[in-house]
């Protein structure tokens, strides 16, 4: 499923709203999540999962092609951990 398919599904379920309204709703949701992570916060969506920011220490990496050392600066990366309910549902899909 891609974003446009998600929007199409929601539009179908909400005939009283225009597609552009649904687009704004979906965009707002992910923009808010991004903004929260940008400011160093966490986003907890019960049943689905949690987004957080993880900090990576600076390290000396290697260019795999030439083998030379390069300094990799410290950075912050977005991280997602699936919630219990989602984890169980996804795992159950393999066993069925």
């Amino acid at each position: 499923m891609i974003k446009s398919e998600l929007i199409a599904q929601l539009t179908e379920e909400n005939p009283h709203l225009f597609q552009r309204d649904i687009e704004r709703i979906v965009a707002s949701i992910f923009e808010e999540i991004t903004k929260a992570l940008e400011s160093g916060g966490r986003v907890e969506l019960r049943g689905f999962g949690a987004f957080s920011v993880r900090h990576r220490a600076p390290r000396i990496g290697r260019n795999p092609k030439s083998g030379e050392s390069v300094n990799v600066p410290a950075k912050s990366v977005p991280f997602f951990k699936a919630g219990k309910e989602l984890r169980q549902r996804v795992d159950a899909s393999m066993r069925s």
Binding site: M1, I2, K3, L6, Q9, L10, E13, I25, V26, I29, F30, L45, G47, F48, E85, L86, R89, V90, A92, S93, M94
Partner: peptide, 18 residues
């Protein structure tokens, strides 16, 4: 509903790309 639809998709073993 947004997260429910996303979960449903993943529970079917499919990807969700945004």
């Amino acid at each position: 509903r947004v997260f429910e639809l996303m979960s449903d998709e993943l529970a079917q073993g499919k990807s969700v790309k945004l």
